[in-house]
Amino acid sequence: MAKQFGKTWWGQEWLLALNNIDYSNRLPRGSSYARKGAVKQIRIDGNHIFAEVAGSSPFPYKIDISIPTFDNDKIEIFLEAVELYPMIISRLLNRELDPLLLRLAQDAGLRIFPRQWTDLTMYCSCPDRAVPCKHLAAVIYKLSEEIDNNPFLVFELHLLDLIAELNKRGSFISRKAVEIPQLADFYIENKKRKAFL
């Protein structure tokens, strides 16, 4: 059975950036690349996603995707609204995003999830000038897996540490309660396993 991307509603929202675009089947090919392990490395640094994707070149293609950051005034409006709904915070403790959270963000003028590929700034070192190419699409698909597992990542990619900000306001969300292994941990673990095979 083919691996499914976007298993949660928030993972699906992330993938909406890929909707309504398809340059000569690059999206299905990107999905196939992600499934077959062509994404060799992903590193998140602030609101930048750096990755390496294997392709027809002897060397992996370099990927750089940047996510827009949020305006501080809008963050403040958003957080004040979230505080009024304790059920949102309790669902966050279970690593779930309440759909109301998305509405509150939109009301505050924050776009948590991209609506189209132009909402992201993307670059790939491959010769294909289409954006997104299949290598970029592969990374976006792969990231949907991590977002499925860690909904806090969608905020962190906009440089908003939701746990820290809610804790400043007295919510007291323990990081241990919501701690999830980082993407890099899985890649490092895989490399260790291969060394012992």
Rank of each mutant, 00 (worst) to 15 (best):
A130W: 12
L102I: 14
P60L: 10
K62S: 12
F113M: 00
V82P: 14
A137V: 04
S66F: 00
F113H: 03
L102M: 07
Q116Y: 12
P60H: 10
D71R: 06
Y141W: 08
P99V: 10
Q116I: 03
Q116D: 14
D107Q: 10
P68R: 08
E80L: 15
I88T: 10
V131R: 12
E80K: 15
D73I: 04
E145D: 15
L143S: 05
I147G: 05
D119H: 08
Y85H: 13
S125M: 04
A138H: 07
S90E: 14
R115T: 14
C126D: 10
D98I: 03
L110I: 11
L84P: 02
T118G: 03
T118L: 08
F113C: 00
A81H: 12
Y85A: 07
D73Q: 13
A130S: 10
P127N: 08
V131C: 09
I65Q: 01
R103D: 04
Y141L: 13
P132C: 02
E83I: 11
Q106T: 12
P86K: 03
F70V: 14
E145I: 01
F70G: 03
D107N: 06
I65M: 07
N72Y: 04
D98S: 14
F70Q: 06
E96N: 13
I112S: 02
Y61W: 11
L100G: 02
I67A: 04
P68K: 09
F113K: 01
C133K: 13
S66N: 04
C133G: 12
D73M: 02
I63M: 13
L101H: 07
D98P: 02
H135Y: 06
T118C: 06
K134H: 11
P99S: 05
I89D: 06
R115V: 10
H135M: 07
L143E: 01
Y61V: 09
N94T: 15
L79K: 11
Q116L: 13
E76Q: 13
S66P: 04
R129I: 10
D98T: 04
L93T: 15
L136D: 09
D98C: 05
I63Y: 06
P60Q: 09
L110H: 00
L120V: 02
N94Y: 13
I75W: 02
A138K: 10
R103M: 06
L143T: 05
I63T: 12
D128Y: 01
R111S: 10
L79Q: 12
A81P: 12
E96P: 07
T69Q: 15
T118E: 15
Y61I: 13
T121H: 11
I147M: 05
A130G: 09
P99T: 05
R91H: 14
I65P: 05
R103Y: 07
M87G: 08
R111E: 15
E83Y: 09
R129P: 12
D73W: 01
F78K: 11
I112Q: 01
L120A: 02
D128N: 10
R111H: 05
D128T: 09
S144V: 11
I112E: 02
R129A: 09
N72P: 14
L143R: 08
I89N: 03
K62L: 09
I77N: 11
R111F: 06
L93V: 08
